[in-house]
Design a protein around this nucleic acid. Structure first.
Lengths: 334, 334
DNA sequence: GCCTCGCATGTAAGCGCTTGCATGACGCGA
DNA sequence: TCGCGTCATGCAAGCGCTTACATGCGAGGC
């Protein structure tokens, strides 16, 4: 930087201003500096800048997993938008484990993340205290809860699942089952199950009659859960799955058991992963606004970091995709 | 830090040593310091540390996309392993565009990435010069080419595709087609097509007879390419796809056209995405060692950064998964 | 018993930027 | 013409660590 200053015949202060606030330096001076920067191939030292300016232009994100495309797609949009705002993404994953998530949060804060994107509201309050202490703005994604004490961007998991369940009930189904991800430490999952129950209650069905199997997200686990549900008597005529992986597993298992979908049993998913369109039959599911969520999150978080504002939570709409895996309830009980 | 030093009755230098090289301080001193750190909730300032130590313990990765799980799964393993090595992941994506990739490389280097993970060898030599100039070690993944001037960790795309093609040829197919991703700027894609041709040549077939359609990776695009191929006369009896998304699209299109798979046409993929097992019929494909690749990459890159060594390239084996979408060639030409 | 060496710790000089404040030039109104 | 405000720029004090070198101590060898 000193070299650049010398070559341009100015002080390092002016070079710094030229880089960070070009408007504050005379056009001709700026040109000279820019030429010097180019000639010398100068690029500011990140550590020094972080130290002096007390910011890193870096945003941390901690997601449960990248192993399937559930979060990856939203993250892709988030990262791309972040770059457009001049920010860089620091990424960590928690494997759905609160203890690992906590460790990652601490790491990212120690690494100087200016802001954090987290999935879901539920975590140890002490963590939020920690973040407040370090003045790190937090944005919660994949959920929408205007009542929460922190801004969020996402969709209403409960309402979305309630809408999907209504569509199922519209088709005459009475004996419903749900294959859910683990609800412990996971408000999204819990809200989805609550949505199923709410829809049942709204139609005068007993929510307690809902058959629920909890299992980690995955195709295999979904298939196992399906096997278990199909062994029950009476057998459910519609299986509402907490995500598409579970739904795909259920579909595969149904086929393996010789059950027709939707003739004998209807199956729905949640997420609209690319695989749900190519399934046979295509999986009815809830489409999540991944891209908009990621893009919006990037804009909100950048704003929070730069202006110190606390934006309002943003609700994004989901879409119920009624595909062939959802059909009318079978006429005669199995 | 000064507070910690004062409370523990030592100098800041000792605190620093206690944090960075615990073995170099007396056990009882260390205990006092650690207690002080705990009591005060001290955590070192990242920028200051980066500035003074000239390293960030941060690794950058630039991948083409996170929109499907092709790279996401490997990245998941990479990130997890990185954390175990005390490193943090800076992530960027390029959308398969060399210009964006270059910009991201420059950004990550400016952000102080100690090392970089890149996908594929092919890029502007000036970029490699830039990286050498900045002394940033680079590891290339998703390919294996021992002859390349840079270390890599991955698999031999050509050999893998050659093996898959051999399996196809074993089943009597003669009229082959390939749906490939764009081969420009993409050595993986190119190697895969080359693998198909090599297998043909090895059996005395004319590699030039291979029908090739290039299209961006995607289910829709795969379906369109399939439609185009199936309209040709004579019609290929086996379609070898450059990845599973293309394969799934081809499968869907075949079904839509009333073609039986594999009765009328065989289809193969590449990647073993989760969706290929649930397809109907299940998609024959090449299983890539995502997790091992990610884990190995993390270990190699950490070593390169810490010891300044240049490790040997690592080849990881792929597995040919012969699933039902691949069958014998139809007896009578279509 | 003296010297040497190794070890634990302290001292202090940066690391390369940003930014509050000071300076001086210039333009404008009185 | 003078004074004041405005603007572009310079000065220099950090930002909070790491680390080369200095120091002082105890142990071991002769």
């Amino acid at each position: 930087m000193a070299d650049v200053a010398h070559r341009a015949g100015v002080s390092t202060a002016t070079v710094s201003r030229c880089v960070n606030a070009p408007a504050r330096v005379q056009p001709e001076t700026r040109e000279r500096i820019e030429a010097a920067i180019r000639d010398l191939g100068y690029s500011p030292n990140f550590g020094a800048r972080a130290l002096a300016a007390r910011r890193t232009d870096t945003i941390g994100a901690i997601i449960p997993t990248l192993d399937n495309s559930v979060f990856a797609r939203g993250l892709q949009a988030f990262q791309t938008a972040l770059v457009e705002h001049g920010m860089t993404l620091l990424l960590a994953s928690s494997s759905y484990r609160p203890d690992l998530e906590e460790a990652q949060i601490r790491t990212l804060v120690a690494r100087g993340a200016d802001g954090l994107l987290l999935i879901g509201h539920e975590r140890d309050p002490a963590l939020y205290d920690f973040l407040a202490l370090h003045r790190v703005p937090v944005l919660v994604a994949w959920v929408h809860d205007p009542a929460a004490p922190r801004p969020s961007v996402g969709f209403d998991n409960k309402a979305a699942m309630e809408a999907m369940t209504s569509a199922v009930l519209d088709r005459g189904h009475v004996r419903l089952a749900t294959i859910s991800g683990h609800t412990r430490f996971n408000d999204r999952t819990r809200d989805r199950v609550a949505g199923v129950r709410a829809a049942m209650a709204a139609r005068g069905l007993d929510p307690a009659a809902l058959a629920v199997v909890e299992t980690p997200y995955g195709i295999e686990t979904g298939a196992q859960a399906m096997a278990e549900l199909m062994a029950r008597d009476p057998r459910p005529t519609a299986v509402i799955c907490g995500n598409d992986l579970l739904g795909m597993g259920a579909l595969r298992q149904a086929r393996a058991m010789g059950l027709r979908v939707p003739g004998d049993v209807s199956i729905t998913g949640f997420d609209d992963m690319e695989l749900s369109t190519v399934a046979d039959p295509p999986l009815a599911t809830v489409a999540i606004p991944h891209a908009r969520m990621g893009t919006t999150a990037a804009a909100m978080l950048t704003g929070m970091v730069r202006d110190g504002t606390r934006p309002d939570s943003v609700a994004l709409p989901c879409e119920i995709l009624l595909r062939a895996s959802l059909g009318p309830a079978p006429l005669s009980p199995a």
